[in-house]
Simulated assay, not measured.
Amino acid sequence: MRFNPKARLDSGQVQNRRGSGGGGGGFGFPAGGGGSGMKVGGGIGGVIVVIIIIVLTQFVGGGGGTSSLPGGAGGAASDSGPVSTGGQELAHCRTGADANQDPDCARVAVVNSIQAYWQDALPDQAGRRYAEADTVIFSDQVGTGCGGATSDVGPFYCPPDQQVYLDTTFFEDMLEGQLGGKGGDFAEAYVLAHEYGHHIQNLLGTMGRVRTQQGADSDAVRLELQADCYAGMWSKFATEVEDADGEVFISELTQEDISEALDSARAVGDDRIQQKTSGRVNPDQWTHGSAEQRMRWFETGRAKGSLQACDTFGARSL
C-alpha cells in the first residue's frame, strides 16, 4: 500500500492518548462465556442495553475463546467521557508523504480515507448523513463512554461516544504473536475499516437488531460479518477515495495488500481462535464467525461494493 504524497491529511480525526493512563484503572474484565461483546440486562418491556462495546476478536489473554467486557457485569457506561486531545500530538502528519514514512501518519491517512469514503457512500446508498468518528490510539488502558478498557480487549468501537479505540501493540503482540497472523500495513487498515463498519451500523441502527449473542447463526455473528463486509466495501474503492482537494489518499493497493487483510480476517475467526486456545471448535460459542466466513464476507463487500450485498441479517446462510 502506497499513499499519494500529495494527499492532505486531517490529523484531527485521530487522537493520540498513549502514555496518558486513560483513566481506565479499576475495571474488571470477567470472562463472558463466549459473549458477543454486548452486555445486556433484563428489564421491564424487553432487553435493556446496559453497556455496548464491539471488539474485533474475543481472544483475551488465552481465555479459551471467551469475550471480556469493561466495567464488569451490569456496569453502566462511564459518565465521564473520553478526554479529547484534538489530534495535536499527530500534527506532524500533514501529507501522504508523511504517511509513507511514519506508521502513525499512515493510520491517519487510512482513517481519513475510510471516513471520506463513507461520507459519500452512506448518503448515496442509505440516504443517511455520515457523522465522523475519531480513532483514539492508546496504550495499556483507556477511559471511554463504554467504561474502562485495557489493551487486552483488542481494537473496539464504543457506540456511546462514537469512537474507535486502538492499542497498536495488538498487531504485533496478539494478531501476529498469539494468533499467528502475517500482519502488514493493510492488516491494520482492515482492522480500522472493520471498526468503522461498526460505526456505520450504529448510525443505521443495526445494533438494535442484535438479540442472540452466541452461536454460529446468532445476531452477534451477523453483526461482525457485516462489519467485515463493510471493510471490504471500502477496500474496493480505496484507491479512488479523494481528499478535499481531489487528491486520492491511497495511490497503490496490491493483491499482497488484500492478502494481508484476508489473512487477518482468517486469524480472528472464531474456529481458528478456539482451536489455538483450547484445541477444539465449538460453534455454539461463536460470536464473530468462522475464518472462512470472515474472509468470504470481506470479499463480498469488495466484489459488490454495496450495503445491500452486505445484508448479513437477511442472509439465509452465513
Score class of each variant (00 low, 15 high):
Phe156Lys: 00
Ala309Lys: 11
Arg266Met: 03
Ala116Ile: 01
Asp263Trp: 03
Gly232Ile: 09
Phe27Met: 05
Ala193Asp: 07
Lys304Ala: 15
Glu242Asp: 08
Tyr130Ala: 05
Asp245Arg: 14
Asp228Trp: 01
Thr300Leu: 13
Trp118Phe: 15
Gly32Arg: 01
Arg2Ser: 05
Glu132Cys: 00
Gly21Val: 01
Met295Gln: 15
Gly246Gln: 10
Ser113His: 04
Ile273His: 01
Ser139Gly: 11
Trp286Gly: 06
Ser11Lys: 00
Ala133Cys: 12
Val241Pro: 14
Ser84Cys: 06
Ala216Pro: 11
Asp102Lys: 03
Ser290Val: 06
Glu242Asn: 07
Gly22Cys: 07
Pro155Asp: 12
Ala126Tyr: 00
Thr85Phe: 05
Asp173Phe: 05
Ala315Trp: 07
Val111Gln: 00
Leu9Met: 12
Glu172Leu: 04
Ala97Thr: 03
Gly177Thr: 00
Gly63Trp: 09
Glu242Pro: 00
Gly75Cys: 09
Val142Arg: 02
Gly12Ile: 00
Ala121Lys: 13
Leu223Lys: 04
Thr212Gln: 15
Gly143His: 00
Gly65Val: 00
Phe298Asn: 05
Ala220Asp: 10
Tyr230Met: 08
Tyr157Lys: 05
Gln13His: 09
Glu132Asp: 12
Met233Thr: 11
Val108Ile: 04
Val241Cys: 13
Leu192Thr: 10
Thr66Gly: 08
Val281Phe: 10
His194Ala: 13
Asp79Glu: 07
Gly12Glu: 06
Ala265Val: 03
Tyr230Thr: 01
Asp217Gln: 14
Leu179Gly: 03
Val153Ala: 13
Arg280Phe: 13
Thr95Met: 13
Ala99Leu: 14
Ala267Asn: 10
Gln141Asp: 05
Pro155Leu: 10
Gln226Ile: 11
Asp161Ala: 04
Pro160Leu: 02
Arg94Ala: 11
Pro159His: 08
Pro155Ile: 06
Gln58Ile: 09
Phe249Arg: 05
Gly42Ile: 05
Cys93Ala: 12
Ala31Asn: 13
Cys229Leu: 02
Gly28Ile: 01
Tyr196Ser: 11
Thr57Trp: 08
Ser218Cys: 06
Ala149Arg: 01
Lys276Ile: 14
Asp152Thr: 14
Asp140Met: 03
Gly145Arg: 02
Asp98Lys: 04
Gly148Thr: 05
Pro103Ser: 06
Gly63Pro: 01
Gly269Phe: 07
Gly197Val: 09
Glu240Gly: 07
Gln88Leu: 08
Val50Thr: 08
Gln201Lys: 05
Phe298Pro: 06
Leu9His: 14
Gly33Ala: 09
Val221Phe: 12
Val49Ile: 02
Gly148Asn: 11
Gly127Asn: 01
Gln274Asn: 02
Ala267Phe: 07
